[in-house]
């Protein structure tokens, strides 16, 4: 494609995946304890989408990548300090909760509006990327609704590969049941792709990309408008950590042979 793609990556921030999460209920409904104190990262699957977007843009001259994020501004700024070093993009920031308890529909409307407001965005070249679901929050519904609002009906979820064919069409691999991929041919943009892990490793930190990105990121953050989520669509009756504690029988004194015998018997039960 001579003019390249306009790739919009939707990516929220989430607590660093190794953090211990505990729900609390406040006046605004459920939230995570110390949510603003937990270290945050760009949502891992959405981050893969960003790297795939940058890779695609690099190989299709004339392409441009935007990162649209609905997150608390201060936390997003901190995450940008890491992510901005990875690949070139322009940030579109919406100031609002990055909570998993937000209604996916509301988030989708806010994101779609932000995308529609991007100056110079060419719908005929548009690819909307994101994670197939948040790797931390896990809703798996937002991106589809963003696409729907934007009128895009070529949508793919759990994408591990996007290959550009010689005629400009796409060959897309989506994760489906049974550890296999569904293979689709798509005529080209506009399309929505919710990425799983993809195939690219995390790019190294590149200081000059960071410096370049940051010139536009800081004004974007400073000018971030409130996302205006009304909330209250879901009535939460109870939010809790599932009780998962089991009485573990620790067996220390058996020989490997005896253990093997027990395991085999158990498997065959």
């Amino acid at each position: 494609m001579s003019n390249g793609y306009h790739i919009v990556v939707c990516a929220g921030i989430v607590p660093d995946p190794l953090q211990t999460l505990e729900p609390v209920t406040g006046p605004q409904g459920p939230a995570l304890r110390n949510e603003m104190m937990l270290p945050a990262v760009l949502d891992p699957w959405a981050a893969h989408a960003l790297y795939e977007a940058a890779h695609l843009a690099r190989n299709a001259p004339g392409s441009k990548v935007w990162l649209v994020s609905l997150s608390p501004k201060a936390k997003l700024q901190q995450v940008m300090m890491t992510i901005a070093q990875k690949v070139p993009f322009e940030l579109v920031a919406l100031d609002g909760p990055a909570s998993g308890f937000t209604d996916a529909g509301e988030t989708a409307v806010a994101l779609a509006r932000a995308i529609q407001a991007i100056p110079g965005l060419d719908r005929s070249r548009l690819l909307v990327f994101g994670g197939w679901e948040s790797a931390s929050r896990g809703a798996g519904a937002t991106l589809q609704m963003v696409g729907e609002i934007l009128g895009i009906t070529d949508q793919f979820q759990g994408v591990d590969a996007l290959e550009i064919q010689s005629d400009g069409s796409f060959r897309i691999l989506e994760r489906i049941e049974g550890g296999v991929h569904q293979v689709s041919a798509c005529a080209g943009p506009p399309a929505v792709l919710g990425w799983a892990t993809g195939t690219l490793p995390e790019p190294p930190n590149q200081p000059q990309i960071g410096m370049q990105n940051m010139r536009a990121i800081m004004p974007a953050l400073q000018g971030a408008q409130p996302a205006g989520l009304a909330g209250g669509k879901i009535e939460f009756l109870e939010v809790r950590i599932p009780s998962v504690r089991r009485e573990t029988q620790v067996i220390k004194d058996l020989s490997p042979e005896e253990i093997a015998k027990e395991i085999v018997e158990w498997i065959k039960e």
């Binding site: 700024q77 070093q85 930190n205 960071g210 410096m211 800081m218």
Partner: peptide, 23 residues
């Protein structure tokens, strides 16, 4: 940990200096 994050945010919001973690 929290103090550094807070200070870092103040520094970054001035737009006059950049802090790059993981570097």
């Amino acid at each position: 940990g929290q103090f550094n994050s807070w200070v870092g945010q103040q520094v970054m919001m001035t737009g006059a200096a950049q802090i790059w973690p993981g570097s």
